[in-house]
């Protein structure tokens, strides 16, 4: 895990050994991570990895059992010091179904002391102006998601924490969301973005945090992770030779996927040479090996399998 890089503007989020248990279930264990100010940080992990609990901890919704953290320079113990500068969308967007989208935002604008004129502006930004007066109960999931993003933008936040904001969005909506997040990052806002859309994160994130079973597997610059790992594509007409290669890679703890006479192995760059040599020694000499930059998805699978960069 790389925490060495010191960004110019410091860190918007820093956690140190943060832990949270719900009964006998450990949701987050010894979580140490940082998010540089001004970065778009991708927050990745399988279901149950502890992403949402971490977000709830950062937002003061649940209290840690151990560890400490600062958000925008203030301790988790004083959420009132930093939350006015934080916008958040946690899990599925939750609204009053019997009220219109506009009224739902007005409720939060009044509570946060934000000007009412902001509500119409934000509905315009997320493309909901024409449905603003309709009951939220009639909205699609994608529309609720847009309303959730508008809600998160109400305080004109320095830090935006979004939990699966692209859930339910159509392809056009996803592209619009991506552009909006880039625009917000361009304004100097820090964005912590939890998502299962790894392709999206690969395009957006300049910082990555990978979580599994409540623990951090990686935290650092996205380019650092992506540069460390490659995808070795192994081709052969002989299925037996491919089996041999798959076994070698699997025994070494690397993620292997197989399709139509092709093996894809996510591994450190240096492993390709080792693989070629071992395959030759174990009776699989007629292989074609190509090395490509690994996708975030392959890296994610590799890390989840316990293969460290």
């Amino acid at each position: 895990m790389s925490l060495s890089s010191e960004p110019a503007r410091g860190f918007a989020i820093e956690t140190q050994g943060l832990s949270k248990r719900f009964g006998s279930q450990t949701a987050v264990e010894g979580l140490t991570m940082r998010v540089p100010a001004g970065a778009i940080a991708g927050f990745i992990g399988p279901n149950g990895a502890g992403k949402t609990t971490t977000i709830r901890l950062l937002l003061g919704l649940v209290r840690p059992d151990a560890g400490s953290a600062t958000v925008l320079g203030h301790s988790l113990a004083e959420p009132e010091r930093y939350l006015p500068r934080v916008g958040a969308l946690v899990e599925a967007p939750a609204f009053y179904p019997g009220l219109s989208g506009q009224t739902n935002l007005e409720v939060l604008a009044r509570l946060g002391g934000h000007p009412g004129s902001l509500v119409a502006e934000l509905l315009e930004v997320v493309g909901l102006s024409d449905r603003a007066r309709d009951r939220v109960g009639t909205y699609s999931l994608g529309m609720k998601q847009r309303l959730g993003v508008a809600m998160a933008l109400l305080p004109d936040p320095e830090l935006l924490i979004l939990d699966e904001p692209a859930n339910g969005l159509d392809p056009l909506g996803i592209i619009e969301m991506r552009e909006m997040l880039r625009r917000l990052a361009g304004q100097g806002k820090t964005i912590l973005l939890s998502s299962h859309l790894l392709g999206e994160l690969e395009q957006l994130a300049d910082w990555l945090i990978m979580l599994n079973q409540g623990k951090v597997l990686f935290c650092g610059p996205a380019r650092e992770l992506l540069a460390q790992r490659v995808e070795v594509v192994v081709e052969s007409q002989d299925a037996i030779q491919l089996d041999v290669v798959a076994r070698i890679a699997g025994d070494a703890g690397h993620a292997v996927t197989r399709e139509d006479g092709v093996l894809r192995i996510a591994c450190p760059a240096g492993f390709a040479e080792t693989l070629n040599r071992m395959a030759g020694e174990t009776g699989a000499p007629d292989l074609t090996l190509r090395i490509r930059e690994a996708s975030l998805e392959q890296l994610f699978l590799a890390l989840i399998k316990g293969d460290h960069p």
Binding site: R56, G60, L61, L83, E91, A94, Y96
Partner: peptide
């Protein structure tokens, strides 16, 4: 409804 989390982030 889950709306409490929105409210407590605001206040």
């Amino acid at each position: 409804q889950g709306t409490l989390r929105n409210l407590l982030v605001c206040e």
